[in-house]
Amino acid sequence: HNLTITQGKLFFHYNPKLCLSEIHKMEEVSGTKGRQERNDIALKTNGDQASCENELLKFSYIRTSFDKILLRWEPYWPPDFRDLLGFMLFYKEAPYQNVTEFDGQDACGSNSWTVVDIDPPLRSNDPKSQNHPGWLMRGLKPWTQYAIFVKTLVTFSDERRTYGAKSDIIYVQTDATNPSVPLDPISVSNSSSQIILKWKPPSDPNGNITHYLVFWERQAEDSELFELDYCLKGLKLPSRTWSPPFESEDSQKHNQSEYEDSAGECCSCPKTDSQILKELEESSFRKTFEDYLHNVVFVPRKTSSGTGAEDPRPSRKRRSLGDVGNVTVAVPTVAAFPNTSSTSVPTSPEEHRPFEKVVNKESLVISGLRHFTGYRIELQACNQDTPEERCSVAAYVSARTMPEAKADDIVGPVTHEIFENNVVHLMWQEPKEPNGLIVLYEVSYRRYGDEELHLCVSRKHFALERGCRLRGLSPGNYSVRIRATSLAGNGSWTEPTYFYVTDYLDVPSNIA
């Protein structure tokens, strides 16, 4: 807008934040220059609390790290170098490059900038070799853009010569660093050979998330399962459950009422301010606690030095998902009996873990797994792929695949051998790939016309006998059925096997 004052003059007093240069501009645009008398524009009460600059400061050096910015700028000295009290560095987070010096300023003089007072450097006698002032900004957020400017702080001049310097606002972004852990990993099994893994992005990506790394490792069953005799009275049979499938998407929606109208769909109840505040506090606490764990609990591995020492970490090797089922080394339970199943799973520490690289999504279907087997899954978020990966501390989750139908069934015939004193040795093959492992066998036998009897055969007993022995049988026709019990439950009964026990007292003698 054009402003013209045809008559009258300007009068400025007691404006401590208004620089004289701005008042002189007002004289020019209003056409009143030359009308004012000496005392109409006070030299001592206008701009006496402001830094009124008329020179431009330029930054000469900028260096960044993930949490620091090192700045240096060209030296500046007023005509009387004693008038320079120091520099004021202003900075704040700036997602967009549209910041002005006066953003967030209120009537009390406060604003949204963080201000650092910096002492002037030592003055050199040689004007050509003056030290460049600077400042190291610490405690910054990774991968965050900051708006920065600097200006001088000078003393009051009796001659009211307006001098000083100020830089333009520059924008500097800190470097990326390792992201925080992925949030809320959930693993479920939808079949006997697959596990579905879902997660949420890290709360602090500290860069642009480029991919996720998912490692999985087959877990050995508890050692007590191999040692305890679950045929003993009072000892509860062990059981394991597989990871249940995901709930429906509708039930997972946030901010939804727990109660549904019987007449149909209901609208979600909005969260109160107290609920939102509580969630923010919980989120802040979780982030602080995660940072504490990362800094205190997890110790970084030592990389190899120039002395030739090897990095103890196993090298990563990509495998196809079809090879995942046989990740671990199978060892027989008892070496003397080769027909026992290889369900003991000690994992070799030198073995390469299978892994998958996930790009542009937060889910993965891990296939080719062994049925009813526990897996430990390790999830890392990465925001750099080359020249070397920059990934987060791992988040861990466990899951067990679903049982395989008929995996616990005894394959092959049940054979028998009759000894003296009416002892019958029953023999059968253990299931080759049971659900988890076989903890015991149930032997059901009966003599024709009598009630059915049951015998429990422990895992250890089966390994020693290759089956079991029935003792003290009365003469007669017998039928026997056997079924295995694994961590997933009972298998199917075998087809009945028949044998006849004679009275050993009636056996004919070869003595003449």
Score class of each variant (00 low, 15 high):
S284L: 07
C456Q: 01
S251V: 12
H254I: 07
T241K: 11
F298Q: 13
E281L: 04
N360W: 14
N206F: 14
A394H: 14
F285Y: 10
G234K: 06
K271Y: 13
N255D: 11
V331F: 13
H371E: 11
G472S: 07
P312M: 12
Y498G: 09
Y445L: 08
A407V: 04
R301K: 05
E350R: 14
T333Q: 06
I410G: 04
L437N: 03
E378T: 14
H425W: 02
A405H: 03
E433P: 02
L277N: 14
Y504R: 10
T497K: 06
L232V: 05
S341C: 10
T415N: 02
I438R: 00
R301A: 04
R481F: 03
F355T: 11
S304N: 15
R286A: 08
H454V: 13
A395C: 03
N422Y: 11
N510A: 14
F355C: 13
Y375T: 02
S268K: 10
W242C: 01
E362R: 14
S492I: 13
G472Q: 05
P346S: 06
K460Y: 06
A309I: 14
A263Y: 07
F226Y: 14
R319S: 09
R481N: 04
R318F: 13
D323M: 15
C468Q: 02
P205L: 10
Y259K: 09
K357E: 13
N421Q: 12
R400C: 04
C267K: 07
P354Q: 13
E227T: 06
F462E: 02
P270G: 02
D291M: 09
P314R: 08
D503F: 07
S392P: 04
E442T: 04
D291K: 03
F355E: 09
P300K: 05
N255P: 12
E265S: 09
Q275E: 04
E389Y: 15
G476L: 00
G489P: 02
P270L: 03
L237H: 02
G368D: 05
A488S: 07
T494P: 01
F337V: 08
R218Q: 09
L453N: 06
Y375E: 00
T415Q: 04
Y259N: 04
Y292I: 02
A394E: 11
L464S: 14
F226N: 08
M427N: 15
P338S: 09
N206L: 13
P270V: 12
T373L: 04
A220V: 04
R481M: 11
S251W: 01
N421W: 11
G449F: 15
Y500N: 12
D229K: 09
E279C: 02
A335Q: 13
P332C: 07
E258R: 11
Q380N: 09
Y212F: 14
N295G: 04
D250L: 12
V296I: 04
E281W: 02
F298R: 08
S367M: 02
Y441G: 00
I482L: 07
E388R: 02
S444A: 14
L437K: 02
S203C: 15
T373K: 12
A407S: 05
S398A: 08
P475H: 13
G472F: 09
N435E: 01
Q252S: 11
G308C: 03
L453C: 10
V334S: 12
Y259D: 04
I418G: 08
K236Q: 05
R353F: 03
V324S: 09
P431C: 08
P387H: 03
L232W: 12
Y292Q: 09
F285K: 14
G325A: 15
L232F: 12
E362H: 07
K236R: 10
L232Q: 13
R483G: 01
E452K: 07
G368A: 01
E279D: 09
W242L: 14
F215E: 02
D250I: 11
S305W: 03
N490S: 15
G325W: 15
E260G: 03
I366H: 01
F499H: 01
L455V: 08
D311L: 10
S248C: 05
D503H: 02
I366N: 00
Q256A: 15
L293A: 14
F372W: 06
Y448I: 14
K361M: 11
I276H: 08
E351D: 12
I410R: 02
K302Y: 14
S474E: 15
S342L: 09
V296Q: 05
A484T: 12
R376V: 06
V331W: 04
K236P: 10
S243Q: 07
R313K: 13
H254K: 15
L225S: 07
L228N: 09
K406A: 14
S203Q: 08
W216N: 03
P496Q: 02
G476D: 00
Y504M: 04
A395P: 03
E227L: 10
F337R: 12
D229S: 10
S320C: 09
I418P: 05
T401V: 07
M402C: 15
T401E: 00
